[in-house]
């Protein structure tokens, strides 16, 4: 796609997104557009002035598979931590473990970092180079981060590689 076309496409998508968001948030009341139109113009101007990221490349199939996976894992995470908090014996054996990231830096990595904190028993604590420090509630339980990494890579259409770049 020519760069000019993709710029217009990006602008149209942003405008459409803003209009939709405003319409949902205000319940579509006609009078709200008096504030809405200048606000959206301002928002588009700010988005345009900010440093431009490469265009988002989300895989639809990846998204369809990620949403149920993520919902199930966050329910499991909530039940797990609630169970630990309510047990008399307080079953915790926390550690900080190192996880070498295979995802390329950028959106996918940030998305991965945030998802880790919502999965059962894991919390992304720090990123040192390409190594993620993960706090786990019980080091005897396999946190299955590779599975999440695979899901995120499929979602963002990006390759998984072992530490080069």
């Amino acid at each position: 796609m020519a760069p000019q076309t993709s710029l217009w496409l990006r602008f149209t998508l942003r405008l459409g997104g803003c209009l939709f968001l405003w319409w949902v948030l205000t319940g579509g009341r006609p009078s709200s557009w008096i504030i809405g139109v200048p606000t959206i113009a301002l928002a588009l101007w700010v988005m345009n002035s900010a440093p431009q990221n490469p265009a988002l490349n989300i895989s639809f199939v990846g998204l369809i598979q990620f949403i149920p996976y993520f919902l199930l894992q966050s329910v499991r995470g909530g039940i797990d931590v609630a169970h630990r908090a309510c047990s008399i014996s307080l079953p915790l054996d926390p550690r900080i473990i190192d996880f070498p990231l295979n995802l390329p830096a950028g959106r996918a990595q940030i998305f991965f970092l945030n998802s880790v904190s919502l999965l059962p028993g894991t919390l992304s604590a720090d990123l040192v180079g390409k190594t993620l420090k993960v706090h786990v509630l019980d080091h005897k339980v396999d946190p299955r981060l590779h599975q999440l990494e695979f899901q995120v890579a499929r979602l963002f259409n990006c390759p998984l590689r072992g530490g080069d770049d």
């Binding site: 909530g78 908090a85 919390l123 706090h135």
Partner: peptide
């Protein structure tokens, strides 16, 4: 400790 408490807040409350 702080880290364990963060686990409780992010996961249980968001759910």
């Amino acid at each position: 400790d702080l880290y364990c408490r963060l686990h409780a807040l992010t996961k249980a409350d968001n759910l």
